[in-house]
């Protein structure tokens, strides 16, 4: 309990650091945010007015504190593009990215876990080589390239699956039916490739390490069946494999910009891409801040789960 509390306390400065970076992003970009919000032909007194309105006349640390105070209440300002509150754009987008990330993580974990365990149990055989090779390819193929290849093959050439969007035109909200799930398949495969590769390799390495531990022959010496021994091995590997999976989930939340753009999947990645092109810096800040906080949160959860699964990590 104490340990968990400490982890949470550690997470706070990290989260604060993240907000500083997110806030400064706008000033590190090639475009002055003031220029972004003012029309090219604005008169000087209009520019002054806008400056005041956005607080650009104040020192940057003060601007940060004002921004942070609002951000903590969920107020990231208003989109320059749509004039709607940023949070109202970020939350629905986050839900869509979450959905993609969850399905992809679930799929990646299931596939990778089986591949990793089989590779470890058949260490050095052709099976190990094929699975390990698959993992290496999964990690090294750029996922936007994979997205395009998938679209070309399955949407354009074979015409089996839709290429873009989250549902047929005019079909309204997402539903878990066959009509909609078809739209999920290609993006999920595209974003799963890297997690499959990484989780396979982690599982293989971890199971191999467990198989070399003395407790494995010791279990055999008690007459425990091979299947039950596998359960012991997997249970020992679980904290590490689940941690790797959790971290991959975190990466998927933030890292699917190009894939979401290729598939026109209206998630946070798509939103980020749009806001960059439209110089919509409040949306950019808001999206990155929300994603970053989620990333910190996921890492925290991974830590806690790992502690809970491994009795050797001191809880005191």
């Amino acid at each position: 309990m104490d340990y968990i509390l400490r982890r949470i306390l550690y997470a706070i400065p990290i989260a604060l650091g993240v907000t500083v970076i997110v806030f400064s992003l706008v000033y590190m970009g090639p475009v002055d945010p003031l220029t972004a919000v003012t029309p090219d032909d604005a008169e000087p007194h209009v520019i002054e007015m806008i400056k005041k309105q956005y607080g650009f006349d104040k020192p940057i640390p003060v601007q940060y504190l004002i921004w942070l105070k609002r951000a903590l209440m969920g107020d990231f300002g208003v989109s320059l593009q749509s004039n709607r509150p940023v949070i109202e754009e970020v939350i629905p987008a986050l839900r869509k990215t979450m959905m993609l990330a969850m399905v992809a993580t679930g799929l990646a974990f299931s596939v990778a876990f089986v591949l990793g365990v089989l590779a470890a149990y058949h260490n050095g055989t052709w099976m190990d080589r094929i699975f390990t090779g698959t993992a290496v390819i999964g990690v090294s193929v750029p996922n936007y390239w994979l997205s395009i290849v998938l679209v070309v093959i399955f949407a354009v050439e074979l015409n089996w699956l839709p290429a873009v969007g989250m549902g047929p035109r005019g079909s309204g909200e997402w539903e878990w039916d066959l009509v909609h799930i078809r739209y999920l398949i290609l993006p999920v495969i595209a974003v799963s490739a890297i997690p499959v590769g990484i989780i396979t390799r982690t599982t293989r390495a971890c199971v191999l390490e467990m198989l070399s531990q003395e407790f494995v022959p010791a279990l055999h010496s008690k007459g425990i069946t091979s299947v039950r021994v596998l359960v012991h091995v997997v249970r020992n590997a679980a904290p590490t494999v689940l941690a790797a999976t959790g971290i991959q989930f975190g990466h998927l939340l933030g890292g699917s910009i190009l894939v979401e753009t290729v598939f026109v999947w209206p998630g946070t990645g798509y939103l980020l891409n749009e806001s960059i092109f439209r110089r919509d810096f409040p949306v950019l800040q808001g999206t990155i801040a929300v994603l970053a906080i989620f990333f910190v949160l996921i890492n925290l959860i991974v830590d806690i789960v790992q502690t809970w699964l491994d009795p050797r990590i001191k809880r005191g």
Binding site: E214, S221, T225, R235, R312
Partner: peptide, 22 residues
């Protein structure tokens, strides 16, 4: 597997590593 543990059993040198830690 039926003989092991039941008819003939073994004590290991290092119980720390021979017992499953989790």
């Amino acid at each position: 597997q039926s003989v092991r543990g039941r008819t003939i059993a073994m004590i290991f040198q290092e119980p720390m590593t021979a017992l499953d830690p989790v």
